[in-house]
Write a protein that binds this DNA or RNA. Sequence first.
DNA 1: CTTAGTACTTGGCCATACATAGTACTTGTT
DNA 2: AACAAGTACTATGTATGGCCAAGTACTAAG
Lengths: 111, 111
Amino acid sequence: MNLENTQVQMRKGILEYCILHIISRGEVYASDMLEELTSAKIMVVEGTLYPLLTRLRKAGLVEYKWVESTSGPPRKYYTITDDGKAFLESLSTTWGELMNSTNQIISEKQS
Amino acid sequence: MNLENTQVQMRKGILEYCILHIISRGEVYASDMLEELTSAKIMVVEGTLYPLLTRLRKAGLVEYKWVESTSGPPRKYYTITDDGKAFLESLSTTWGELMNSTNQIISEKQS
DNA sequence: CTTAGTACTTGGCCATACATAGTACTTGTT
DNA sequence: AACAAGTACTATGTATGGCCAAGTACTAAG
């Protein structure tokens, strides 16, 4: 029951929402996403991101195409699908409700 | 990859935060908590709440005392400990940061 | 005594984040 | 050509927490 562990738990599911949102804004590959997440202070490692992307693809929420790179191996550039857009909408609602509910609880004064 | 599942994942850790916060406001027992969570639209079942309370107790973040009831079996009334208060402070920070980070991501426009 | 309601307990399941190690391709240096 | 370094992606195993479902124990009402 240490803090670090709870922090990990707290962002479960939210990562999926963030990634899907980033992809919805245009073609990106994994390192782009890592950069954006890091700049938003959401620390993520490769071992977390890649399996997540695989899950999203298997679920038909995103697609990718190989694009050759001038500095290294080819990259998978991801785009969101129509199903992905619909799912993202639902996630937005879910996240909004969760924020509302939580903030309602924690803003309650001593009874 | 259905919505329900993601909703479950999204609230991991957050429930712990909410419960601890509710207990910090004064003596309560499980049904009080369930009622408050439900009124905030956070649906929780017994099988989730009781193990969570046990974890919090084992971690020394909350204590309880038995109080007899006039309408049924005795109840465990929970109170927060000093350690619990400190932990709650940290969770507040964590939750605030998570909200900021997520909202930063999802408010980003198309690039 | 039986039934219903309340309060709490327990065991097993599942999905996700993570650590870690490994594969494959390209570029630059010797 | 051989090697090291950097980049991009893959695979395996672990731990945690929320949840379902079944079960125990106590009280009050019929």
